Computed example of a mutant assay.
Amino acid sequence: MLWNLRLKAAERGIWKSAELRRMLADAGLELSLGKMSALWTGTPTTVRLDDLDVICVVLSCQPSDLLVPEPDKVAARKPAREMTAGADTPPIVRPRPGNPRSTPPL
Rank of each mutant, 00 (worst) to 15 (best):
residue 14 I to M: 04
residue 14 I to R: 03
residue 15 W to A: 05
residue 15 W to H: 13
residue 15 W to N: 04
residue 16 K to C: 01
residue 17 S to H: 13
residue 18 A to L: 06
residue 20 L to A: 03
residue 20 L to E: 01
residue 21 R to N: 05
residue 22 R to N: 08
residue 23 M to S: 06
residue 25 A to G: 01
residue 25 A to L: 05
residue 26 D to F: 07
residue 26 D to L: 07
residue 26 D to A: 12
residue 30 E to S: 06
residue 31 L to Q: 05
residue 31 L to V: 09
residue 31 L to M: 07
residue 32 S to L: 01
residue 32 S to W: 08
residue 34 G to V: 12
residue 35 K to G: 00
residue 37 S to Y: 15
residue 38 A to H: 15
residue 38 A to V: 13
residue 38 A to R: 15
residue 39 L to E: 03
residue 39 L to A: 02
residue 40 W to E: 02
residue 40 W to Y: 12
residue 42 G to Y: 11
residue 42 G to I: 08
residue 43 T to M: 06
residue 44 P to W: 14
residue 45 T to Q: 12
residue 45 T to Y: 13
residue 45 T to S: 10
residue 46 T to Q: 14
residue 46 T to V: 11
residue 46 T to K: 14
residue 47 V to D: 04
residue 47 V to Q: 02
residue 48 R to E: 09
residue 48 R to N: 08
residue 48 R to Y: 10
residue 49 L to T: 11
residue 49 L to G: 03
residue 49 L to V: 12
residue 49 L to E: 09
residue 50 D to W: 08
residue 50 D to R: 13
residue 51 D to W: 08
residue 51 D to M: 02
residue 52 L to T: 05
residue 53 D to F: 15
residue 55 I to H: 01
residue 55 I to F: 04
residue 56 C to A: 06
residue 56 C to K: 07
residue 58 V to D: 01
residue 59 L to R: 03
residue 59 L to S: 01
residue 60 S to C: 04
residue 61 C to L: 10
residue 61 C to R: 06
residue 61 C to G: 04
residue 61 C to S: 08
residue 63 P to C: 11
residue 64 S to V: 10
residue 64 S to R: 13
residue 64 S to I: 07
residue 64 S to L: 07
residue 64 S to C: 03
residue 65 D to A: 12
residue 65 D to N: 13
residue 65 D to Q: 09
residue 66 L to M: 03
residue 67 L to R: 07
residue 67 L to Y: 07
residue 68 V to S: 05
residue 68 V to T: 13
residue 68 V to I: 13
residue 69 P to L: 14
residue 70 E to S: 09
residue 70 E to Q: 14
residue 70 E to I: 06
residue 72 D to C: 01
residue 73 K to H: 08
residue 73 K to L: 15
residue 73 K to P: 00
residue 74 V to E: 08
residue 76 A to F: 13
residue 76 A to K: 15
residue 76 A to P: 00
residue 76 A to L: 13
residue 77 R to W: 08
residue 77 R to M: 07
residue 78 K to Q: 12
residue 78 K to V: 09
residue 78 K to T: 07
residue 79 P to D: 05
residue 79 P to E: 08
residue 79 P to N: 08
residue 80 A to V: 06
residue 81 R to K: 14
residue 82 E to G: 04
residue 82 E to A: 11
residue 83 M to G: 00
